[in-house]
Write a protein that binds this DNA or RNA. Structure first.
Length: 814
RNA sequence: GCUGGAGUGGCGGAACUGGCAGACGCACGGGACUCAAAAUCCCGCGACCUUCACUGGUCAUGAGGGUUCGACCCCCUCCUCCAGCACCA
């Protein structure tokens, strides 16, 4: 029974070929609904694979295999595999585009767009550009257009000069493009397509209540901040040019308002100031657009005009200032320097009076002459006419009521979230299915003409116009309504549109009449467990919640939320930078899989740390995993003959190993059920194998057989190829991960005797072992008589002895 | 600035409910096997003190304080790092 050396290449290739094309995970609809797990692995048209995906994949894959072995019928929607497994779930694999189509497209994008990183062997089947997705994205777009959820308007939008495209607000980080972190975005006024996500702002917020506890708190916090709901009051300040409407959450402070400030982009600026003033305002807008990360100095000027406070009748100056945003509230504010820190800073700079009108419940009004900072808390309103003496909250209520009664204002809710700009001037992405006709206006492409596909003969110039504009066959069309000459829309959709609903398509991937059959969705949804990266907390995860609500309103789905439980794995960091698709840093994972095999690569990624934590990517430790797998393989192969025999000594070693084995099964089972800390699961298997090496010679055939079999099963989720190979070596057939997960015997896992720790004043002094359930006073006596304890107790007074049954004795002396 | 999260050996990380701090792995050192090397197998590996040695002890979980018989874990104050948001009225 010579051992075999571990040849990962030969093993993995063998099973790769055997499994190719097989539907290994096949979920069927049955009376007990299977679990629905989704890994965030998107069939982006641009979907390149990166290490973050590899990690995500490894976590989800191990988990899905485990669930599968537990008898859960897991729908595990992987159409392709990061580490060289064949398409494992043909049941859900997307219907692929014709191969030639895909390859020519890729070749073209590769050739013309160097920035675009491809890291994967495209000759293997990889989901890339999907006419299927285009079709249904377009279908949804038309439905949204009908309902006014998709609309077009001229708007100030974020423009990345490097990408030469428009970006959504969500894709702007630190005023720079998410793909070019040092390139500030510009503001441009362009005709753009939008999705009215603001219509769902309230619901997106309210429904978070049902996600509480099932989604990571930080994701919910981020979404809450992003939606940014605040309740307040809109108030019209009168002026000779008509009312200037401001928004405030603190109308109770309005008697302290000493000026009105409008944003430099505010439409009133035109009327309020002369050409010089307009130039100055323009300057402010530009300065803000070009500012780098960090603060800009507060800056403003007086317009020379005044507005009237409708509550007090007081005339206050109107200013223009750079810190007031056109994109929030009404684009105009009242400045209450005494009770808002920003206003305080601004007004002190320009010597605008500070007038306190709120005092703490048990204090007095601040003295403006000595104030160092604004008093921003609620309190008691003073010097406010009929409202004097009221608490802030009550004052707000009554003041708002008065505004409504007298028609100069109203209660209002403002959101930070803005409508989702989906227009992109990129080549890849779903073409927006509308036609512009001089006579008929915007005409939707008729449903039976979908999908509108991308032309292949394009040149990608990066010049700031969609490359599609340069393709006359694509652009010049007949108007579907009047038949006259018309132009096809050349903007393509943000790829986040694809990712907003792709998991619905998993449930019905071959449907060619609709994106999916609502009955199938009703069966599968809501997703039980979604696994993805934190980096999508506010992009993808808000968009897909919005899409679900939109689809529900169209009558396609019944659920209001797409995902019941969310798990966000930590990002992969390398040399201080996060690994992401847009940077194309993919080499390491491939290199790892190539050098040590996919089993080692997958297991190493899992061993690197707990999955919710960030990991610093370094490959030094991978050899340890490779060594470990080799140890397992050699142990199994050299003992396989012995394991087939019978009998042998049933000695101490047997007992010890059996106990360790059952403890290991218990530990890994628990890790899978609760924490998903696979790093400790793997450590546990390593411990078991270390013990096996120590006891190897003394083991009986029976125990060897049990141990090798369970080892194969335990390794199934982490190292599927090796596990399968061991399974075959054992003379068993069929895929190892279709075997039931091994059970453990709690009795066997238990130690014979409890090991009791003896402490003196909390310091460890001795160990003793005693049968489980030994009486407290017996433990107490034994501990006190322990020789190693004597020197610390002698000559001292024993004050107290604490006994924790089966665990510990602590002797307190003085 | 605000909101989350985290600080444990040379490194990644364990310690799950307040009960043996450093599991497991990497790196490193030593030994066995070998003509030799690789591979493999075995042993050691927080710091300091003590002992010829066996051993024994002290200090250690970012810093300081508190609660407790007992604190990496709970509470207070502070520091540092990471992430998200950042003039949101």
């Amino acid at each position: 029974m010579p051992e075999k050396s571990y040849d990962h290449k030969q093993i993995e290739l063998k099973w790769y070929e055997k499994w190719a094309g097989e539907e290994l995970y096949k979920a069927e609809e049955d009376s007990s609904r299977p679990k629905f797990y989704v890994l965030e692995m998107l069939p982006y048209p641009s979907g390149a694979l990166h290490i973050g995906h590899v990690r995500n994949y490894s976590i989800g894959d191990a988990l899905a295999r485990y669930k599968w072995m537990r008898g859960f019928n897991v729908l595990h929607p992987m159409g392709w595999d990061a580490f060289g497994l064949p398409a494992e779930n043909a049941a859900i694999a997307n219907q692929r585009p014709p191969r030639e189509w895909t390859l020519s497209n890729i070749a073209r994008m590769k050739a013309t767009h160097r920035r675009f990183q491809f890291s994967y062997d495209w000759d293997r089947e990889v989901t890339t550009c999907e006419p299927d997705y285009y079709r249904w994205n377009q279908w949804f777009f038309l439905k949204m257009l009908e309902r006014g959820i998709a609309y077009r308007k001229k708007a100030l939008v974020n423009w990345c000069p490097q990408c030469a495209t428009v970006l959504a607000n969500e894709q702007v980080e630190n005023v720079c493009c998410w793909r070019h972190e040092t390139t500030p975005v510009e503001q441009r006024a362009l005709e753009q397509w939008f999705f009215k996500i603001t219509q769902y702002a309230d619901e997106l917020l309210a429904d978070m209540a049902q996600l509480e506890g099932n989604w990571p708190e930080r994701v919910l916090t981020m979404q809450r901040n992003w939606i940014g709901r605040s309740e307040g009051t809109e108030v019209d300040f009168g002026s000779e040019f008509g009312p200037i409407r401001i928004f405030t959450t603190r109308v109770d402070t309005i008697f302290g308002a000493t000026c009105v400030i409008v944003a430099p982009e505010h439409p009133f600026v035109e009327k309020l100031v002369d050409a010089a003033g307009r130039a100055r305002a323009k300057q402010m807008v530009d300065a803000r657009a070009n500012k780098g990360p960090g603060d800009i100095e507060k800056d403003g000027f007086f317009t020379g005009k005044y507005a009237v406070n409708p509550y007090s009748g007081e005339r206050v100056p109107i200013w223009v200032a750079n810190f007031v945003l056109m994109t929030y509230g009404t684009g105009a504010i009242m400045a209450v320097p005494a009770h808002d820190q920003r206003d305080f800073e601004f007004c002190t700079k320009y010597r605008i009076p500070v007038r306190p009108v709120i005092r703490p419940a048990d204090g007095v009004l601040d003295d403006p002459a000595t104030m160092k900072a604004a008093f921003g808390d609620d309190g008691i309103v003073e010097n406010a006419g009929e409202f004097s003496g009221l608490a802030s909250e009550e004052a707000r209520r009554r003041m708002t009521a008065k505004a409504e009664r007298e028609g100069f204002g109203k209660a209002a809710v403002t959101y930070r979230i803005k409508d989702w700009g989906v227009s992109r001037q990129r080549y890849w992405g779903t073409p927006i299915p509308v036609i512009h006709c001089k006579k008929c206006g915007v005409v939707p492409v008729p449903e039976n003409e979908l999908p509108v596909l991308l032309p292949l003969n394009v040149e990608i110039t990066g010049k700031g116009r969609s490359p599609l504009e340069e393709v006359p066959e694509f652009v010049n069309v007949k108007c579907p309504q009047c038949g006259g000459a018309a132009r096809r829309e050349t903007d393509t959709m943000d790829t986040f549109v694809d990712s907003s609903w792709y998991f619905y398509r998993y449930c019905d991937p071959k449907n060619d009449r609709a994106p999916y059959d609502p009955k199938k969705i009703a069966y599968w949804f809501t997703i039980d467990q979604y696994i993805g990266g934190v980096e999508h907390a506010i992009l993808h995860l808000i968009y897909s919640r919005f899409f679900t609500k939109m689809m529900r309103d169209i009558g396609l789905v019944k659920n209001s939320e797409p995902v019941k439980k969310l798990f966000t794995q930590g990002m992969v960091i390398a040399e201080g930078a996060k690994m992401s698709k847009s940077k194309g840093n993919v080499v390491d994972a491939d290199w790892l899989a190539d050098k040590f095999g996919t089993d080692t690569a997958r297991m190493f990624v899992l061993f690197a740390g707990p999955p919710e934590k960030e990991v610093d990517w370094r490959t030094e430790g991978a050899e340890g995993i490779y060594r470990f797998l080799g140890r397992v393989y050699r142990f199994a192969t050299r003992n396989i003959e012995r394991a087939r025999g019978s009998g042998g000594p049933a000695g101490e070693s047997d007992k010890k190993i059996l106990r360790k084995l059952h403890q290991t099964v218990k530990k890994i089972t628990e890790d899978f059920e609760s924490r998903w800390h696979f790093n400790t699961s793997i450590a546990a298997v390593m411990e078991l194998v270390n013990d096996l090496y120590a006891e190897e010679a003394q083991l009986s055939s029976t125990v060897l057989a049990e141990v090798i079999e369970k080892l194969a099963l335990l390794l199934g989720p982490f190292a599927p190829y090796l596990a399968q190979e061991l399974w075959e070596e054992l003379g068993k057939t069929g895929p190892v991960f279709k075997q039931p997960w091994p059970s453990y015997d709690a009795g066997l896992a238990k130690e014979d005797e409890a090991e009791i720790v003896v402490q003196v004043n909390g310091k460890l002094r001795a160990h003793l072992s005693a049968p489980f359930g030994t009486a407290q006073d017996v433990l107490r006596e034994r501990a006190l008589n322990e020789p190693k304890v004597q020197p610390f107790v002698n000559g001292k007074q024993v004050v107290k002895v604490i006994v924790v049954p089966d665990k510990l004795v602590n002797i307190v002396v003085r």
